[in-house]
Design a binder for these strands. Structure first.
Lengths: 205, 205
DNA sequence: GTCTATAACTCGATAGAC
DNA sequence: GTCTATCGAGTTATAGAC
């Protein structure tokens, strides 16, 4: 793997990393260009040299992060796996992504709220999730008597809800369960299994 | 019911209503005192006359709204209802509250993120949710062979997740399901039943 | 209590030297 | 490319008249 010619990162990279961190923690309105500059170890002027404005810098970060939100969901859902395997893989990969990006949900949801049309375009492109495929798959299994009927979008929303919400409400969850940061992450690691069980127990006949 | 002596609301009330709306839509950082003044039909100076600062005004609103978030949850959970009835009532009342306050979740979660310690104090006081009670209740039913084992906090988190998340991700849900505002609300009305079914199907033996 | 005017300050953005 | 210095717009907050 070819590295930067200097031993430290390029200025652009430093800015992007600092901006990501600050925007995630504070949101676009709460973030200060000064904070980002400080965290990147440079001055404000340089931020504007690289990315004309705060809004543009934010868009850059959002564009990058938006793609993580709907990770390999589509590919899992249209794959040749069974529904049960799909649920397992979906939840597993979703929670893994969140474990590595715990602030991603609140960041994305705030932008969706602030600027729904553009945000959704950046997240989904023009490609709606493969709800129809899921509906078909469910219909087959219902006919075979293996699962109870449920709407495809509802199954998807429920899975996503169960994965994401604990990260959104993390300080509350930690307070209620009296867990440290480390313990919380372990809890979420375990949660992969319990969510899969919760969902499958619900739909299995 | 005794009314204000004038036919319109008191200035304080007008401010509180305007502030609630603006803070909910924009968050504390995105909100402008000018917007609140405009919406209340007064000027900025008067805002400061009634509530010393933006932060203080925000605290006022948050305090009021924080109590809706954990509505009658505790009372339901410690009541004499069966677990199945509790789930039904819990979900029903939660979604009803959200139907009347669709922006409440993102508002609360953002403050929890911005200021976890104080926010949690305002939401819960010092009283943790009655998880132990739920654990006991579950233990009994497991012993009787009526339900599968599940941790009390996990059942609660799952119920809350399933209720709240669709409101948090509302623009996304509406885009995926191609629903208007009105249709979305109907969908959430229906969701009361499907969430109850989803949860009960999952834990019932 | 309510208003107008403005002070005090923050912050994004730019100019210009090196 | 990177820095210092500063501008100028926008915002919270206050002073003071009515």
């Amino acid at each position: 793997m070819i590295k930067e010619n200097k031993n430290d990162k390029s200025t652009e990279q430093k800015i992007l990393e600092a901006a990501k961190q600050v925007f995630m923690e504070k949101g676009i309105d709460g973030a200060r260009m000064q904070d980002i500059a400080d965290k990147a170890g440079i001055n404000k002027a340089l931020l504007h040299y690289y990315f004309r404005s705060k809004e543009k810098l934010f868009e850059m970060i959002f564009m990058e992060e938006a793609r993580k939100f709907l990770p390999k969901v589509t590919s899992i859902m249209v794959s040749e796996l069974t529904l049960f395997e799909k649920v397992e893989k979906f939840v597993g990969e979703y929670i893994d992504t969140l474990l590595q990006n715990p602030l991603l949900p609140i960041f994305i949801l705030n932008e969706i709220n602030r600027n729904p049309k553009e945000a959704i375009k950046k997240i989904f492109g023009n490609q709606r999730p493969p709800i129809d495929k899921v509906d078909e798959l469910i219909a087959k299994l219902v006919k075979k008597g293996e699962i109870k009927p449920i709407k495809g979008y509802e199954l998807m929303v429920n899975m996503v809800s169960l994965c994401i919400f604990p990260f959104l409400a993390r300080p509350m969850v930690q307070w209620v369960t009296k867990t440290t940061d480390e313990e919380f992450l372990k809890l979420m690691e375990l949660r992969k299994k319990t969510v899969v069980k919760f969902v499958l127990d619900s739909i299995k006949k």
